[in-house]
Design a binder for these strands. Sequence first.
DNA 1: TTTATTTAGGATAATTTTGTCCGAAATAAA
DNA 2: TTTATTTCGGACAAAATTATCCTAAATAAA
Lengths: 144, 144
Amino acid sequence: MFSKACEYGIKATIYIAVKSMRQERVSLKEIAEEVNSPVAFTAKILQSLAKSGIIDSHKGPTGGFQIEEAKIDTIKLHDIVHAIDGDKIFVGCGLGLEQCDANQPCPVHDKFVGIRNNLKVMLQNTSLYELATGLDIGLTHLKR
Amino acid sequence: MFSKACEYGIKATIYIAVKSMRQERVSLKEIAEEVNSPVAFTAKILQSLAKSGIIDSHKGPTGGFQIEEAKIDTIKLHDIVHAIDGDKIFVGCGLGLEQCDANQPCPVHDKFVGIRNNLKVMLQNTSLYELATGLDIGLTHLKR
DNA sequence: TTTATTTAGGATAATTTTGTCCGAAATAAA
DNA sequence: TTTATTTCGGACAAAATTATCCTAAATAAA
Ligand code: FES
Ligand code: FES
């Protein structure tokens, strides 16, 4: 469904959000540990999320990653997925035709667009805030 | 969403079904052309679909692939996807945890299982027959 | 100013997925 | 029986994704 990069990116962002809600910055090393992801690969993903403006990064001692608290409520899961995996999952054809077109539909088009839209709506309606809160109160988990 | 192998496999199976409804066998070469897929790669996929019992294969002149007509109605999209991509898409965790477990849910679990189940139900309820019929009457297309 | 710490970024490697090549086996027709 | 045709199956290659390594740049603290 999502790429590994996207899975790591989502988990990392949620973890950063939890810490940011306590006004704490968090280092790459800590993130990778808590999210159970390869450190250097996670670094790349965070770098790109920082360029996308979803997270903030700071170099040097006391450096690390954080998210503007006001943003935590407005950032949606959709934004993270879109930043990492692009929009193929939202607009692409289920059978890989160059583009999904209702006027020249593939055999699964009618059945597929519904599912694809469910996913899109879900991701658009899910805020980073609620994901982070669930993790913070111990309702959900980032590793096993 | 689906792997390339799965996309090719679905399209190929639908095409074979259309021909089988006319009691015609169809060659690998013809399938790959009509489905717009790489010939040799498609051969591998068809080989595995044949082993899974979804399609029948015959060697030699007049050989090719076909599907038992009685089966066309009972084969569901789910069967094809499962044969090629396995069950990860149906039971796997949206964030890549080793296993999806409602007792130790990841942050997206509650939101994700709904989508995942929508997809599963859709695939289980979609018969090869209806997909093949739509293609046969020119309502849908396998390439662009 | 020096040092220690942390992210940035480029090069490289490993793994998985996608795709190719070719000879063997089967089989129908000549 | 010979030949032509078609799938089977194994080895191999290319491309994409995932992952590592190392040096540079920034920056906070000593
Ligand atoms: S054309 Fe294939 S999903 Fe729309
Ligand atoms: S635990 Fe992640 S989707 Fe169920």
